[in-house]
């Protein structure tokens, strides 16, 4: 395992984010293992550079209605990048409504290609800058579940997801 990868896993562990290591072929089964139904998701093929959307073979309802989103427990989306030093995952705000599916659920399941793991924050911000400059993209650097300390102690799940689960898709396996 690379140094970045092991630092990444340590960071995620400290944040309480659990990890499943997967491959392109085992992805649908691994997703089904992780989600709690009802689960919703967005079309992920293109975002992950896969030929087909891996969610079509799972129990996840792709591109749900707003009402179905509000009923869902789990939302499945992809991260475009990740930061090993912080355990951060870079989420996008796209017209497939990834932001809504990431945010209006109790459990967020995030898919990441192993090759998109960056080491530090500076390089990640530079990569985000390139996308912003090219296509006026918006991004969220998300680190762990949503949290608040406003009610007297640290509580996970303030407004956003209470739990975050990461599925890392390893290459060529």
């Amino acid at each position: 395992m690379s140094q970045s990868r092991s630092r990444f896993e340590t960071s995620l562990d400290e944040l309480g984010v659990s990890i499943t290591v997967s491959t392109e072929t085992s992805l649908p089964a691994d997703i089904d293992d992780v989600i709690t139904t009802p689960a919703v998701g967005v079309a992920l093929g293109e975002a992950l550079g896969l030929d087909a959307n891996p969610l079509t073979e799972t129990a996840v309802a792709v591109d749900p209605t707003p009402a179905a989103l509000r009923q869902a427990t789990t939302g499945v989306t992809a991260a475009t990048l990740a930061v090993a030093d912080y355990g951060s995952l870079v989420l996008t705000m796209d017209d497939r409504a990834s932001e809504l599916v990431s945010l209006f659920v109790d459990e967020h399941v995030i898919l990441l290609r192993e090759r998109d793991l960056m080491s530090g924050l500076e390089a990640t911000v530079d990569a985000v800058e390139r996308r912003v400059t090219e296509s006026s993209e918006s991004a969220i650097i998300a680190t762990g579940p949503s949290a608040t300390a406003d009610m007297g102690e640290l509580i996970l799940g303030a407004h956003g997801p209470k739990e975050v689960h990461l599925i890392v898709i390893e290459e060529g396996a």
């Binding site: 209605t65 707003p66 009402a67 179905a68 989103l69 509000r70 912080y86 951060s88 705000m93 796209d94 017209d95 409504a97 990834s98 932001e99 809504l100 924050l121 985000v128 912003v132 006026s136 993209e137 918006s138 991004a139 969220i140 650097i141 998300a142 680190t143 762990g144 579940p145 949503s146 949290a147 956003g160």
Partner: peptide
């Protein structure tokens, strides 16, 4: 780092939805 660092370049692409629509 805080949970969310949003880097928004409006208009954001997220659709504007009616949350009661089924």
């Amino acid at each position: 780092i805080t949970s969310y660092v949003s880097l928004l370049t409006p208009p954001v692409a997220t659709p504007v939805v009616d949350f009661t629509n089924d």
